[in-house]
């Protein structure tokens, strides 16, 4: 039995990966199954797709899902209003329906001349029906456009990465077809590596003090939004720019507004900071 040849993701310079993630990515590529990545905000789900694209030197097609996104939009939209408009006021041949069919992100990924990495970011934002509606298309990597009697089939099966921060929002049938990986919130050690990727010259004292304060803030359950990696990186950037001595970090928590972006959390912090209820 021969091993199939398949693209090998081993990481990229700007992204700290782990063995399990790389293996999950590779097996999803090898088996041609979508990779579902779940994890708290800021655990690098979105960045992983970028890293795969960069690592494998492939183009990245991003489909950002919003609460109003419909599965259909990822396939194609038929711009009937434009056509109607043209029929009244334009001089185009409105009989040529093809020109009014606009492929969505999935459609674009299918017809790309080379294999692309397709990121379907934040699937959980959409209606519960959304993933179900895409099941067939992702499975068969093709769809049919009745308006033009055309079938769009993937020239190359895109490497599909789907991210979600939610649990149980996805239908079983959909889950069964995915490879799944849960990215844990980084441990302080891993976080230190991530910070160093972004700030290679950071002083040891600064990083350790900043991480200590960051992780103690994350323990506070009363926050509406716990600070995550992005906030930490912003905060460290501010600390460096402000030339804050490391001794002051825990004592004063300067620029705490970059860590606690919600007004309520900021207020809560200010109210309770003196007494340190955490």
């Amino acid at each position: 039995m021969k091993k199939d040849n398949f693209a090998q993701f081993s990481g990229s310079e700007d992204y700290v990966t782990s063995e399990p993630i790389r293996n999950a990515v590779n097996v999803s590529i090898a088996l041609g199954r979508p990779l579902l990545i779940r994890g708290e905000a800021g655990t690098g789900k979105t960045l992983l797709a970028h890293s795969i694209a960069r690592g494998l030197e492939k183009k990245l097609t991003i489909w950002n899902v919003k609460s109003t996104t419909k599965a259909q939009e990822g396939l194609y939209v038929y711009d009937t209003v434009q056509r109607l408009n043209d029929s009244r006021f334009g001089d185009k041949d409105v009989g040529d329906i093809k020109q009014y069919i606009k492929l969505g992100k999935l459609g674009q990924a299918f017809i790309a001349p080379e294999q692309v990495v397709l990121l379907i970011d934040e699937v959980d934002k959409a209606d519960i029906e959304f993933p179900n509606d895409l099941l067939n298309e992702l499975d068969e990597m093709s769809f049919y456009i009745p308006e033009t009697n055309e079938t769009i089939s993937a020239i190359h099966r895109p490497i599909t990465v789907i991210t979600s921060n939610a649990e149980k929002e996805l239908p079983d049938a959909f889950l069964r077809r995915c490879i799944f990986h849960y990215i844990e919130f980084p441990t302080p050690e891993l976080m230190e590596e991530i910070v160093r990727v972004h700030f290679p010259d950071i002083k040891d004292n600064l990083i350790s003090e900043a991480l200590k304060t960051f992780y103690s803030l994350r323990k506070v359950d009363d926050f509406r939004k716990k600070p995550s990696t992005s906030e930490l990186l912003d905060w460290i950037r501010a600390l460096i720019a402000g030339g804050i001595p490391h001794e002051d970090i825990a004592k004063q928590v300067p620029f705490v507004g970059t860590l606690l972006k919600k007004e309520n959390d900021y207020d809560f912090f200010v109210r309770n900071f003196a007494t340190r209820r955490w």
Partner: peptide, 15 residues
């Protein structure tokens, strides 16, 4: 395809 553990081509971050 997974390479030896411990061997990482240059420029790759292993967490």
């Amino acid at each position: 395809p997974f390479g030896h553990s411990g061997y990482h081509p240059a420029g790759i971050r292993i967490g």
